[in-house]
Design a protein around this nucleic acid. Sequence first.
DNA 1: TTCATTATGTTAAAATTTGTTAACTACAGA
DNA 2: TCTGTAGTTAACAAATTTTAACATAATGAA
Lengths: 235, 235
Amino acid sequence: MSRIGLPHIVIIEDEPVTRATLTSYLDSNGYRVTEAASAPKAEEILARDPADLLLIDVNLEGKDGLQITREQRAQSEIGIILISGRTDDIDRIVGLEMGADDYVCKPFNRRELLARIKNLLRRTTALRHLSRTVFRFAGFTFDINTRRLTRADGEAVRLTRAEYEVLAQLVRHPAAVQSREKLVTCITHRQESPEPRTVDVLVRRLRKKLEDDPKAPQIITTSHGEGYIFTGRLE
Amino acid sequence: MSRIGLPHIVIIEDEPVTRATLTSYLDSNGYRVTEAASAPKAEEILARDPADLLLIDVNLEGKDGLQITREQRAQSEIGIILISGRTDDIDRIVGLEMGADDYVCKPFNRRELLARIKNLLRRTTALRHLSRTVFRFAGFTFDINTRRLTRADGEAVRLTRAEYEVLAQLVRHPAAVQSREKLVTCITHRQESPEPRTVDVLVRRLRKKLEDDPKAPQIITTSHGEGYIFTGRLE
DNA sequence: TTCATTATGTTAAAATTTGTTAACTACAGA
DNA sequence: TCTGTAGTTAACAAATTTTAACATAATGAA
């Protein structure tokens, strides 16, 4: 049976029995499931086969679920559900404030988990499909598909690949802060990323091409201590 | 009181105390909240002022929470969180399978609910940023999305990130006292907050940029022992 | 292949933003 | 008015970003 096109779920759980049970249950409900016993293993999998949703056990050996959540959330909008043996309020709150979409306590009802997964996937995949491909702002026309940026006078502005990736990420999330961490992973889709400071340089080069006055940027704004924001007016 | 630009949450709950508590908590956390005691009342509200998220008590008199969920989900992708006094697995599963994004059991932790709301809104409002949210006062134009502040003569006033955050919080809650504690949490989105005194300095810097006579502030007023208030006249 | 050109990444100094502190001033209650 | 508390101000320290110069890697043409 072909698994291509099915939503891809990665389970990060070091307890083999729970892992296998979950996998087979989700698999039989129409999802493509990949298992990872630890954080490094999961990162390896995600690097070559991006997931739609992560199911993470909070209490992992080594890098724990909360840490994974923070790192993933910094660089993507992937759906994250935490699973924990502890029912403590504080644990749950910390997980959710870290950006996990949901927090489920063991022992959990499989059918409930399935419903939660389904609802969350509806949200995350809807977002993906809503993505536009042509954006207009400040006289520029930016086509994400053809990678072309055109000035008001019709003149094409040449963007390098890295510049394109950064601009695309920013434009796709108008008025939302994009961390350097998130932006570097847009530049290289590989595992080892360059210095986050590299983003500063790319932004500078973009500003030179986009802004009337690069010293007082209007389109790509700095959010001190946080990252960069697209603040152009989209038409 | 103007609350333009804030996410709009509608609470549907027939128990007055729970309703009021929730409303004031969410309101003080930067949301625009409308209360409805019943389904018909809620529909009336939604018809003239669409919401970003519904907080629905399951056990309502008349049309209950599950029914509202089904109807709303049939016609929109609005975020829905169900609240229930019953902790039964089956109730929860039915609610979730009906399309509710989340199901919270009483007694719930407010902070947890807030985290869940925040995460869900992040999913549902990703596109809302395209709209403009502009405030006008004392000749200034302040656009929350593009982070731009413009003087009466059209000259742009540069705001640093922290200054922007403070001004945005004040403007969103005109004529309401904002405590230093509230304002510092606006400045830093990270865990550890700076000294509340930092706010004083930011307000001073804002006054220098906004006020005709910073010694006799008209727009950002001090409330001795309490905090600061936006007292500009919004147009 | 080699060379020239362009793109990408790194680094350090300069500039800016943010946060802290302390002296000073204003306020409110006794 | 006195007195303790709270707010303003300025100067400074710490953190972060910008800028420019340069090193390395990738690309394309001869």
